[in-house]
């Protein structure tokens, strides 16, 4: 497992008694220190997860008691066009937004890594969108992208271009949402930058002498060294893009206007729970999301063995 901690070699049975006693004390302490978190995880993660699986098999209208209905909610989901539409939108969103975000963030990090002057300024600017309140961010984008009268379209038209209607056009709205998701990539950029700065000087300088071609160096020296950061950004990116909510509901409302093009999985889940009071269906959607995310991350971790490079040579 790539996610487990490195384990120091242990040879317990051969150690002298005093040491074994100390080991037992350490083990007790380990459990003791982890106990609050184990309790917290049980109360706030494990138990609710079980309850969610239970609610998913009930008819539960939020007020009153849940009633067992077996797999009916899952069957209803399979027949629900909103489920499929939102799943499709969310998958497209994730499949395009996540890689694009990683590439752009990596590009920015490579650029930042060369900065001598103004590094602090650039870093702040790239991080800024992340610090804007999400609701305000979406509202500002809607103002900027207003067809005809918005500043972006006025500027583009002045340059002789024929800009799209962005959020008004059903064909363009999802792509606009993807475009907007590329703004807050300060975290990803800083993660990559951290990785780049940790590359030992002798390695990168040796590469400078060996091969003057930058692309070569990037692909064969730099990229392998920051693959742990790529893995981190990829996993976190996928989880968050599957949960895109605030932007989508501010822009598309509960019906994903225009023409359901911005209808996202979380919006459908949220409206099932708090607009239609159909908690059973919402829980069923939550469990589906859980299973999909679990499978995806397991797959990523599984393949990660072959492409993530760890210092010290072990793979």
């Amino acid at each position: 497992m790539p996610i487990t901690a490195p384990i120091a070699p242990q040879a317990a049975p051969l150690l002298p008694r005093r040491n074994r006693k100390a080991q037992r004390a350490e083990a007790r302490a380990g459990l003791f220190f982890a106990l609050p978190w184990i309790i917290g995880m049980t109360i706030f993660v494990a138990l609710p997860l079980i309850v969610t699986f239970y609610i998913a098999q009930t008819k539960f209208q939020i007020v009153g008691a849940p009633k067992w209905v077996g797999l009916q909610n899952y069957e209803a989901l399979l027949r629900d066009p909103a489920f499929w539409k939102s799943a499709q939108n969310t998958l497209i969103f994730a499949a395009i937004s996540v890689p694009l975000k990683l590439i752009i963030a990596l590009g920015l990090a490579l650029l930042l890594n060369r900065a001598t002057a103004l590094l602090g300024f650039y870093r702040t600017v790239f991080y800024l969108p992340f610090l804007m309140p999400a609701v305000a961010g979406s509202v500002v984008f809607m103002l900027l992208l207003t067809p005809n009268a918005g500043p972006v379209n006025i500027a583009l038209e002045a340059m002789g271009l024929n800009p799209p209607d962005w959020l008004l056009d059903p064909k363009a709205a999802l792509w606009t949402l993807i475009l907007l998701s590329l703004w807050p990539l300060g975290v990803e950029t800083l993660v990559f930058l951290g990785g780049l700065q940790n590359i030992p000087k002798d390695v990168s300088e040796a590469a400078d002498l060996d091969s003057p071609k930058r692309w070569h160096k990037l692909v064969w020296i730099t990229l392998p060294l920051i693959t742990p950061m790529v893995l981190f950004n990829l996993v976190i990116g996928i989880i968050y893009s599957f949960q895109v909510f605030t932007q989508a509901i501010v822009i598309g409302g509960t019906t994903g206007t225009p023409a359901e093009s911005t209808l996202m999985y979380m919006v459908v889940l949220y409206r099932a729970a708090f607009r239609y009071f159909n908690m059973g269906l919402a829980a069923a959607m939550a469990t589906v999301l859980f299973v999909v995310v679990l499978i995806l991350t397991l797959l990523i971790f599984k393949t990660a063995r072959s492409w993530v490079h760890y210092e010290g040579g072990e793979t």
């Binding site: 989880i239 889940l269 939550a286 469990t287 995310v293």
Partner: peptide, 12 residues
Amino acid sequence: ALLMPTIVTFLP
């Protein structure tokens, strides 16, 4: 737990 979407555990 880190990978789990908040909404999964939210309702209960």
